[in-house]
Amino acid sequence: MKKVVITGGSGLLGPSVIEEFINSGYKVLNVDHKLPDNPICETIIADLTNLGEAYDVLVGADAVVHLAAIPRAYMAPTDVTFQNNTMATFNILEAAGNLGIKKAVITSSESIYGIVFSKSGLTPQYVPIDEEHPTLPEDSYGLSKIVNEKTAKMIHNRTGMQVVSLRIGNVIAAPHMYKNFPGFIDNPKERIAILWSYIDARDAAIAYRLAVEKNELGTAVLNIAADNSSMNIKSTDLMKEAFPGVTDFREPLTGYETLLSNKKAKEILDWKPIYNWRDEVKKL
């Protein structure tokens, strides 16, 4: 049985990722600064900004999935966010590479493109936004994600370790969170900053597992989003309302398609999101 260390497993996305790996036959160790509400595997409390502790928790692992971070801009002082997120990622990858671990997956973010937390009114240069779109963050959180992706390249160059960076969109982490959808799905002014994207935590978890199981990915960078937007308004109408100046559409938009492209993840990982907000709302 292969062992995977999952950092940040006690957070919003972590439980779904842990469950996905356990159900797929992996031995899982959760590493976090707090215990999970509903533990399903062993947890070690550690400070990953300490390199020695990163080494300690990774001994004997076959792969590492790094979720741990301050999860958004402005919830902590900007320097604290930057220092925590970059140092924890550096330490995990540095330790993993030096320990001979061959696979790592780190958590990047759609905020890397700069629109999510923009205070200057940044707009997308084209849609759907793919991984080649310029990264123009105005905040230390988005900047930390750029640094982390560069760190992944550095570690890969030195050790050959495969490091996949998943640019995760708005996570819907439990079925009950879909109860919020009817309150915003008909208002184009809601959720503009995230381009109305979302991803079910269970679908994201599958992407993490596939990123560990696939070979020869080097330092792939992949957007992870649902196939459709989180709105009950067609995507072209959303763009006309919120971003009328954006006219460069790289894919046909005929319905409710996502504006955060997941095409590359589908091609490279053979991944396909399963969960659709319309189906989940009906269940509630």
Rank of each mutant, 00 (worst) to 15 (best):
K3D: 07
V4C: 09
V5D: 04
I6Q: 04
I6R: 00
S10T: 11
G14E: 01
G14Y: 08
I18G: 04
I18Q: 02
I22H: 00
N38P: 05
C41F: 06
T43P: 03
I44H: 14
D47H: 07
E53K: 13
D56I: 07
V59K: 13
G60P: 04
G60Y: 10
D62M: 04
A63I: 06
V65G: 01
L67F: 04
P77I: 14
D79I: 13
T81Q: 04
F82S: 01
A88S: 14
N91E: 06
A95I: 12
A96C: 00
I106E: 06
Y113I: 10
G114W: 12
G114E: 07
K119A: 02
T123N: 08
P124G: 01
V127L: 13
I129M: 15
E131H: 05
H133L: 03
E138W: 12
E138F: 05
G142R: 01
S144E: 04
I146C: 06
K150F: 13
K150I: 03
A152D: 01
H156G: 07
R158E: 11
I168V: 12
V171T: 10
M177F: 14
K179E: 15
F184I: 12
K189M: 10
R191K: 11
A193R: 09
L195I: 00
Y198E: 05
I206D: 08
V212C: 07
N215Y: 13
L217G: 04
S229V: 01
K234A: 11
P244I: 13
G245E: 12
T247H: 09
D248N: 15
T258M: 05
N262E: 01
K263R: 14
K266V: 10
W271G: 02
Y275T: 15
D279Y: 15
K283G: 07
